Computed example of a mutant assay.
Amino acid sequence: MTQPLLKSARLRTLGMSAEIATRLRTLIEEGELPPGARIDERAFCELFDVSKTPLREALKVLVAEGLVLHRQYIGYRVAPLDLEELRSTFELLHGLEATAGELAASRLSEVAMARLERKHQAMLEAHAAGRRTEYFRINQEIHQLIIDGAANPVLANIYATLMSKVHRARGAANADMLRWQESHEEHEVIMQALRESGRPRLAQVLRWHSENTANEVLTVVARSLSEPAQTKKDAKGNQ
């Protein structure tokens, strides 16, 4: 085989692996692949209709990003979450949400408000139809629109950095049906605050929602981290 053909085959593999990495990253961040979950290479090769080579190239990218762990003879697993880091990150996010609310109260344009109304309606439809992943994605888009409405690029950059640390934890918590309903109800309150003249409650409501989300996320993560230890303890007690 000539060198150009080898190069062409390599480029196709790299392009394929990049797409697979994107799809796996989405599954991890939206909670479809929870922390600690084993990544079955054969199953994902069948799912994506690819060989192991591009799949493993994609997994190497996710290992470098810290989303996936690899151990020789054990294979690939979704990286666990750090409870203390999450707790500290949320403490900062509460303040950013409130600050964004204060700024957006006067800076949010009519065009942006119209987009928020459309997104909110789409989220309601996803909730009614039971489309959890779509609901979660639109939920995040609504928060981003409010952040953008604050018109402060420094705040937006810090927010994006912090959100990248908690995004997949939020996805895992969003799998909880009770929290899904609570989040839906809280977003109705947020929209009410956005529609009010002068939006005097917006900052307070956004902080309240952020704190409620954090409480649920931290509870779910703490439970997931304690389950293996508890299972091991129970197994030992049954011997």
Rank of each mutant, 00 (worst) to 15 (best):
Q3L: 11
P4S: 05
P4T: 01
K7F: 12
R10W: 14
R10Y: 13
R10P: 07
R12N: 06
M16N: 10
E19M: 02
I20Y: 07
I20T: 00
A21S: 15
T22G: 06
T22H: 10
L24F: 04
T26K: 15
T26A: 13
I28F: 02
E29N: 14
E30K: 07
D40W: 09
D40K: 03
E41A: 13
F48P: 00
P54K: 06
L55V: 01
A58P: 10
G66L: 02
L67V: 06
G75K: 00
Y76S: 07
V78N: 05
L81S: 08
L81F: 08
D82K: 03
E84R: 15
E85G: 04
L86F: 08
L86D: 08
R87A: 10
F90Q: 11
E91S: 14
L92T: 00
L92K: 09
L96M: 00
A100T: 06
L108K: 00
E110T: 10
E110K: 01
M113F: 11
A114D: 11
E117N: 05
E117K: 13
Q121H: 14
A122F: 05
E125D: 07
E125C: 00
A128H: 13
A129F: 01
G130V: 09
R132C: 02
R132N: 05
T133Y: 05
F136N: 14
R137D: 14
I138C: 08
I138A: 04
E141T: 02
I142T: 04
H143V: 01
I146F: 01
D148M: 02
A150R: 02
A150F: 03
A156R: 09
A156L: 06
I158T: 02
L162D: 00
M163I: 00
K165H: 12
K165I: 11
H167Y: 10
R168Y: 03
D176W: 10
L178E: 13
R179M: 13
R179F: 13
E185N: 15
E185K: 07
E185W: 10
H187W: 04
E188Q: 12
I190L: 15
M191F: 07
R195A: 09
P200D: 01
R201F: 02
S210W: 12
N212M: 14
A214M: 05
V220M: 03
R223F: 01
K233T: 13
G237T: 07
